[in-house]
Amino acid sequence: MSCSRREFLKNTMAGAVAAAMPACSVILLAPGEAKAMTDGSKLRWAFLVDTEKCVGCGLCVDACKTENEIPYDAPVSRTWVERYVITKDGETHIDSPKAGRDGFTTGEIRGEEIDPEDIDKAFFVPKLCNQCDNPPCVQVCPVGATYQTDDGVVLVDRKWCIGCGYCVMACPYGVRFFHPIHKTAEKCNFCYHRITDGKQAACVQACPFEARKMGNLRDPEDPVTKVISNERVQVLKDEYGTKPHVFYLGLDEKVR
């Protein structure tokens, strides 16, 4: 078969273009992206804290410690409750003894007795991991041991964490610590083992006043989603650009 040079070049070009066409139509996706494009987008966990309802009983902290096997007396906790007392002189007194585990049973704040007459306002604020959409802890983990699931929860792989503490430093909310036994980074994960099994998170279940609730932001019919979209909610420290997903009702400007 004879073939001129011009023809050969023409055919080669056509062949190359034909071969490249299907390659162009393929997009390389990270496993997470691929999953999100198929089924992951139907679920995004969010937490709703109604600070008006919290009485500081500490049952949530107690339940969390037991459920997630955080040594009961260790001075660390995946969730905690803060008490704020704002006195007439404008001072803000804050405490969280034992992370609020045993409740707030005295009027004493860090050894200082406050006269009820001097109090302008006082309230409790439960805190936990904000499961940020832009989590700085995930960004700084040098080995990828902490990662975000498709449904928005940030998890820690205890088998892979090297214990450098960079994530602990990077979290503006101070939710992370080292597990006293596993010696790896530890934090609230919305009780991922429970919520993926159709159960409530331990703290949500333990709260007698429904101050803590969880829902799916992607489901417009979800009662929690309805509150978040229809009422005036607030998040903590949004100036860090972390896009936190724990929403607060009745949050005071004094809350840190």
């Binding site: 960004q139 700084v140 040098p142 080995v143 892979w160 090297i162 450098c164 960079y166 080292f178």
Partner: peptide, 28 residues
């Protein structure tokens, strides 16, 4: 010092095995 500081010093090679490059430490 980094080795002495790690809570899991036996996993010190992991940043080389599975570097997560958005982290400043990963490239160390």
């Amino acid at each position: 010092p980094l080795l002495l500081h790690l809570q899991q010093p036996l996993r010190a090679m992991e940043p080389l095995l599975t570097p997560h490059f958005t982290s400043a430490i990963a490239a160390f």
